[in-house]
């Protein structure tokens, strides 16, 4: 009989290692949100595995009192895929950054999403390389001045969500690095989702790219410039809750409730579960407002489910139970 999952608190998930991120870094928020989310997931501590690549974010597993591997640059999705395929009972988490996942590990990132293995990826996007001390990343803006672009960055950026949905991501959530409550909830939702879940955290790097998201995430402007979407609810935002999204031709448009006869009835209702990603892509691309929350959550068959079904069928149809059955089958002959 399956033993009941014991009651944990966030302290059960904190390792004895001293946390060594820079003071004021959003990484602390992410760590604490994860430690708070895990007791709510109904998973056993010994079944949790964190796999990271290289970068500031990738120190994360050392601070979690679970199984973990701090691996090599960009490869965490591939390593995590092996962990999950070897033991589908585990709750497997990939911890990565914008450089780790979209530069050196771009190939693994898109393929893990395509395959839809039931694991979770937390992408710490600070639009800069932190650990190597301040070069531009694949999400840095054009014109951004960094150590490796003193006259301004000339390489246009990826949008993580656009890339992910293009790579067939079934679950994409985005969350601001300074909203721990929502972050905790989205981690819980990601674990509950069956398939690859990607959560992009808009994470501020106070040292090399401070304030990169201030225009959206600053407490003073947050409500007017960010839209937190929830499945089945109209996409309304603003301090006054009077702004909303409508579809105008092939574009999303911000409208004001009460102006030009607009009522709540006219506002688009968020459907995260829709298979067609068109509207999800539009939401991901919007610059104003910046959309956060679970943008896409389409339930689909996972790779493990396909593999398991195939293996069960092959096993049922096969006469080979032991390797000897194979070795001594077919064209064998005796020498006396």
């Amino acid at each position: 009989m399956e033993a009941a999952v014991k009651e944990y608190t966030y302290k059960d998930f904190a390792s004895d290692q001293e946390v060594r991120w820079c003071p004021g870094c959003d990484d602390y928020v992410i760590l604490r949100s994860m430690q708070k989310a895990l007791p709510e997931m109904g998973v056993k501590k010994e079944d949790v595995v964190f796999i990271s690549g290289i970068g500031c974010s990738s120190r994360f597993p050392y601070y979690m009192d679970t199984y973990g591997m701090h691996s090599i640059h960009g490869r965490a999705p591939a390593i995590a895929s092996g962990v999950k395929l070897a033991n589908p009972n585990l709750s497997v988490w990939v911890i990565t950054g914008d450089g780790d996942s979209m530069a050196i590990g771009g190939n693994h990132f898109i393929h893990v999403l395509r395959r839809n293995i039931n694991l979770n990826i937390v992408l710490f996007n600070n639009e800069i390389y932190g650990l190597t001390k301040g070069q531009f990343s694949p999400t840095s803006l054009v014109g951004q001045k960094t150590k490796s672009s003193p006259y301004g960055n000339t390489q246009p950026p990826f949008s993580a969500g656009e890339l992910a949905i293009g790579a067939k991501a079934r679950f994409f959530g985005r969350i601001s690095g300074n909203t721990p409550k929502e972050m905790t909830q989205i981690f819980i939702d990601a674990e509950k989702f069956k398939g690859t879940s990607l959560i992009e955290v808009l994470q501020n790097c106070p040292i090399f790219n401070d304030g990169a998201y201030d225009k959206y995430t600053d407490k003073a402007v947050r409500e007017d410039r960010m839209l937190f979407v929830e499945d089945g609810k109209p996409m309304i935002f603003g301090k006054e809750r009077n702004k909303g999204l409508v579809l105008n031709g092939l574009k999303l448009e911000v409208v004001t409730l009460g102006e030009n006869g607009i009522t709540e009835e006219d506002i688009l209702v968020h459907n995260a579960k829709e298979e067609d990603p068109t509207l999800h892509q539009m939401l991901v691309r919007l610059e104003f407002p910046m959309v956060t929350g679970i943008i896409r959550s389409f339930d689909d068959v996972t790779l493990e489910e396909r593999e398991d079904a195939l293996t069960a069928q092959v096993k049922a149809d096969s006469n080979f139970k032991k390797t000897d059955d194979l070795f001594f089958s077919g064209d064998i002959y005796n020498v006396f």
């Binding site: 591997m69 390593i79 962990v83 070897a86 293996t311």
Partner: peptide, 29 residues
């Protein structure tokens, strides 16, 4: 040889091939 429970992953590249194997080894295969 899925009848023996063999798990295979044709990966996206050579690096993912070995990396997935490292993950599987970590998980006890």
């Amino acid at each position: 040889h899925k009848h023996f429970g063999v798990k295979t992953l044709q990966a996206e590249d050579e690096i993912a091939g070995i990396s997935s194997a490292i993950g599987a080894a970590f998980a006890g295969d």
